[in-house]
Simulated assay, not measured.
Amino acid sequence: MEKLLDICAELLDGNNYEALVATIVLIVSILLFKEFRKNKLESDSNNSQRTNEAIDLYSRALSTINKFEKDHFDINLLYDDLYTMYKYSPKDVISQIESWISDSNRNTLELTKILKNDMYYLKSLQYDSVSFRLKNEFCGAIEYYYHKHNFSSFVMPIVNTFISILSILVMVLFILTFNPVSISAKVLILVLLISSIMYMFLIMAVFDLIITKKFKYSKLNVLYASILVLSVMPLLIRINLIAVTLYTVYIWVYLIFILKRSIK
């Protein structure tokens, strides 16, 4: 880091401002990437630990159900196991369990189905050589190697770094061009800035949903996501009021209405 700072000082003394800006961007990018990757690795480790703990609790609850069916356990012991699972269970599963508990005509087959469905989902998040079985499918192989070698610990920090640097550069550009341009141009630049930041976050969110298997696949959802990815293309050809308006409207429509429908 000291060497990079020395280089910046030399470039400043030599009035080489373009190289100075590039060096500063490089330094900031490296620092951001390191921080994002550190957070990503910690998050992955915590998620893996929680997944393993949740599977253990689900297995214990299923075992208790089996013993309860054979009159070896009291119903209260089963309740204890179910309530212990709540800190790991999603809201919809908790709601289903609560409905089962309050149902006077309940049967354990229904509860077993609820728990197994969620446990199978948790198992699908394990990609270690012991738990995962590689399917003879091209996409399955790509998915396996992506998770097995933890490529997401590089991909996601790069995406986060790119979004951060892009946001900073666009903001700086907006500030530098604020005075000479007209009011309408200022508004257009500001709208484009905000929409572009939201666009990158949405792309990252959809990518994360696909990787974590929370994306709800349907023809419409795939179509909407494809349009989202391609919505920036007209702006790459020419920036005008119509292109920015259509781009901005679709970004916010996707954020407010479509994104939540794409989540399992």
Rank of each mutant, 00 (worst) to 15 (best):
S152E: 10
Y121M: 01
W252D: 03
F162G: 00
N117R: 14
L190H: 05
R60M: 09
M200H: 07
I211N: 09
M198N: 14
R37G: 02
K40L: 05
N221F: 06
I251M: 06
K123A: 00
I227M: 11
T64Q: 12
T112G: 03
K34E: 05
Y144L: 00
I27H: 02
A61F: 06
E69K: 11
H147G: 06
I189M: 14
L31M: 13
A22I: 00
Y199V: 01
I158A: 15
N240A: 06
N16W: 04
V155S: 09
E42A: 11
D56S: 11
P234F: 04
L78S: 10
R37I: 01
I114L: 10
S226K: 06
M1D: 12
R106K: 15
I239L: 11
I97F: 06
E69V: 00
S195H: 08
A205P: 03
S231V: 03
Y217D: 02
K264M: 06
K38D: 09
M204A: 01
W252M: 07
S129D: 15
L12D: 12
E69F: 07
A243G: 03
K91I: 07
N52E: 12
L228W: 01
I194E: 07
S124N: 08
M204Y: 14
L188H: 10
V206I: 15
L193G: 02
S262P: 14
Y83R: 10
N47F: 13
V130D: 14
E69C: 04
S102G: 06
N46V: 07
V28A: 13
Y17D: 05
F36E: 09
F33R: 02
